[in-house]
Each structure stands twice: as C-alpha cells, then as structure tokens.
C-alpha cells in the first residue's frame, strides 16, 4: 500500500513542482516522499521512487511527443545515435526514475538513521 502511495505521491507532487523547478527537483520529491513512509529495507523505497519517476518522466515525454507525431523525438533520437521515439521516451523515463530513486534512497537512509533503534530487527 505505502509502495503504491509513494508512487502516487511522487507523480503528483513531482508533476506540480517540475512545472516550476529544474529537473533535479524530482530527486527532492523522491527524498521527501521516502521520509513519509516506513520501509524495512532500502529496495522498496528505491523501486517505488524509480517507478514513480519513470512514469512521470516517461509519461510526460509521451504527452509532449503527441502534438507533433514524434517528429522532434525522431530527429533527436537520431542525433543521439539510436533509433526510435520509444527508446528516447524510455531513456527519459529511466533517467527520471533514477533521479527519484536516488533521492528516495537517501531519504530512506536518513529516516533509518534516526529511527534505527526502533526499527524491528530483521
């Protein structure tokens, strides 16, 4: 449940903040969102944030791509030396995912640092 909630939080908060702040704000969103949930292990917050960032960036790239039928993305993917609009959308998504996931991981570790004693032993 919290896994899903974190994904939704990243997409929602990320979307709003990205309209006003540079690209790295997605890492801060990932970081902040991880503080709000209690995970036992690092993998879950990493994955949740990765999926959130991936969906937000990939989805936005897809949406931006619609009005001109992929013409720009087609040319840019050729410029970057690989073929295809979808590759570019996925690459963009993965980048957003990584940025959010790294932030989220840091958030998890920070929370873990202060909650270490209360953490149930594995």
């Amino acid at each position: 449940m919290k896994f899903l909630l974190q994904i939704i939080l990243i997409i929602g908060l990320g979307f709003i903040l990205q309209l006003f702040f540079p690209f790295w704000v997605i890492s801060i969103v990932g970081f902040a969102s991880a503080l709000g949930f209690r995970y036992r292990k690092a993998l879950a917050p990493f994955l949740a944030a990765f999926l959130g960032g991936l969906l937000l960036w990939g989805g936005m790239a897809y949406y931006q791509n619609l009005p001109n039928d992929g013409q720009l993305a087609e040319r840019v993917s050729a410029l970057m030396g690989f073929g295809g609009v979808w590759t570019l959308i996925i690459l963009t998504g993965v980048l957003g995912g990584l940025l959010a996931a790294l932030g989220s991981l840091s958030g998890y570790f920070l929370r873990d640092l202060f909650q270490g004693q209360k953490k149930p032993s594995a």
């Binding site: 936005m60 001109n68 963009t92």
Partner: peptide
C-alpha cells in the same frame, strides 16, 4: 547536459509544442 536536455518538462521535449 542530459538532465536538462531530457527533462520532459523543460528540456527538448518542451520544444515539441512550439507553434501550438
């Protein structure tokens, strides 16, 4: 700078919409 460049909110993706 790949972050700025691929950012779907501000990077090149945003130029897909220029004339609109």
């Amino acid at each position: 700078a790949f972050g700025k460049w691929l950012d779907p909110f501000g990077g090149f993706w945003n130029n897909s919409r220029s004339e609109q």
